[in-house]
């Protein structure tokens, strides 16, 4: 992992209460996340691969190699309790919390709210 990315990640985790890495989000997820973040009082940094306008929190666009490194790191171990990997892509070999919305047990907004806690 590049030293600069590691340093900036360490700083971000010290500075922000939640660091969210938004991975290939659908438009719907972006909209819902915007709504939740508007109400959120925690200090949040959003890391994204592409610039997503109008997010009510600090945002940093990652380069392609940074995205790759960050994913590799996150899939190696859990390095922070404050780092959230958020996606609605269904390509992973583990269950998604968004399944609760599909079953009608919670709204996607409630699920995102739960993830911010």
């Amino acid at each position: 992992m590049a030293v600069s990315l590691k340093k900036s990640l360490e700083n971000a985790l010290k500075h922000y209460e939640r660091v969210i890495f938004l991975y290939q989000p659908s438009k719907e997820l972006c909209t819902e996340l915007r709504t939740i973040l508007k109400k959120e009082k925690k200090g949040i940094l959003l890391l994204t691969a592409t610039e997503i306008p109008d997010f009510p929190c600090d945002q940093r666009k990652l380069q392609e190699d940074e995205c790759k490194s960050l994913m590799e790191l996150y899939f190696t171990y859990s390095f922070s309790n404050h780092f959230i990997f958020l996606t609605d892509q269904n390509e992973f070999p583990w269950p998604s919390i968004l399944n609760f919305a599909k079953a009608g047990l919670a709204t996607r907004g409630e699920i995102l709210e739960a993830l911010m806690r």
Binding site: P95, L105, E110
Partner: peptide, 26 residues
């Protein structure tokens, strides 16, 4: 750690059976 289904319990009361039926298996 990549599995975070239990976090839903911070906003909703969901029985354990439903955590598996709807959460784990969709």
């Amino acid at each position: 750690y990549v599995v975070n289904l239990w976090k839903i319990l911070s906003v909703k009361k969901i029985p354990f059976d439903a955590l598996y039926r709807c959460g784990v298996f969709g």
